[in-house]
């Protein structure tokens, strides 16, 4: 193998900002892909020594152990309040929250909306897999209509459980938001696009423009009861219809141009 490596150029390997600790996620879960993208960006921006990561309660409760950066885990839903406290106390640090749909869009809705509306210089990566993963597949605020979960066993009925909540569309109404984009990582081609979106959300903070958030539509093969490949297809066919991909807010690109940042 070493002979082989000598004749080759390294294209892609584990980013330095990951701790190397094995992820605790189920096989095929998209969390790991998004972790890797964030770590690559921390490496590329040289932010490892400046980053403070706030993990949520949920499957990614251990996220702070997977990254080789300083971090903490917030109470359920409070990541953006914790991050606000960090950023206000240490504006020179790069503060990142990583949150799921139950955390960010149900119990933590107030924190999400107010941190965004204040334009906190924080970058948030929001994993939307339409289900509560860690607690075993209960209905999430983003569960699709008709979708069966352990607490909507007859399928989500809007008369009973209301509608899936659209966070990116809400972000659009908040003046403090500098960047908001919804992406997915279910196909290889999606992954560089998702990385570019998260990069813009990094710039929202780094160029002092405002709050940056990227929603990543993700699979939960375990709680959806599908194999990982099938779950990806299900996401493409169902979730994207409910949660249209695209850029919802972008005040960053212009500032990047002004400042000559590529």
């Amino acid at each position: 193998m070493s002979e082989q490596v000598k004749d080759a150029i390294l294209l892609a390997s584990m980013p330095k900002s990951l701790s190397g600790k094995e992820f605790t996620y189920c096989p095929g879960c998209h969390h790991g892909i998004v972790h890797r993208l964030i770590a690559e960006l921390i490496d590329e921006f040289g932010l490892k020594e400046k980053t403070l990561l706030v993990a949520p309660v949920g499957c990614s409760v251990f996220a702070y152990e997977f990254f080789d950066v300083d971090g903490t885990v917030a109470a359920h839903g409070r990541a953006l309040a914790v991050a606000t406290g960090m950023k206000r106390a240490r504006p020179d640090m790069f503060v990142l929250t990583y949150q799921g749909d139950g955390d960010l869009a149900a119990i933590g809705t107030a924190e999400t909306i107010h941190a965004a509306n204040r334009g906190e210089r924080i970058t948030t990566v929001f994993i939307n897999n339409a289900v509560y993963g860690m607690t075993g597949g209960q209905m999430a605020p983003t569960t699709l209509l008709g979708m069966k979960t352990t607490t909507s066993p007859y399928g989500r009925d809007p008369k009973r459980e209301g509608y899936p909540i659209h966070i990116m569309e809400i972000m659009k109404a908040l003046p403090g938001v500098a960047y908001a984009e919804r992406v997915k990582v279910s196909k290889p081609q999606d992954v560089p696009k998702a990385k570019m979106a998260i990069k813009k959300a990094f710039y929202a903070q780094l160029l002092d423009v405002g709050f940056g958030i990227v929603e990543v539509l993700s699979t939960c093969p375990t709680n959806w009861g599908m194999d990982p490949v099938e779950a990806g297809k299900w996401l493409d066919e169902n979730m994207v219809k409910e949660f249209p991909l695209g850029v919802y807010v972008d005040k960053v690109t212009e500032v990047m141009k002004e400042k000559g940042v590529k």
């Binding site: 150029i9 892609a12 584990m14 996620y25 790991g32």
Partner: peptide, 19 residues
């Protein structure tokens, strides 16, 4: 092409290109 690297959720894959 790195597609495997892109989609691997456990960051298990290292990709090389021959000179």
């Amino acid at each position: 092409c790195q597609f495997c690297y892109y989609t691997c959720p456990d960051v298990c894959i290292t990709v090389y290109r021959y000179k």
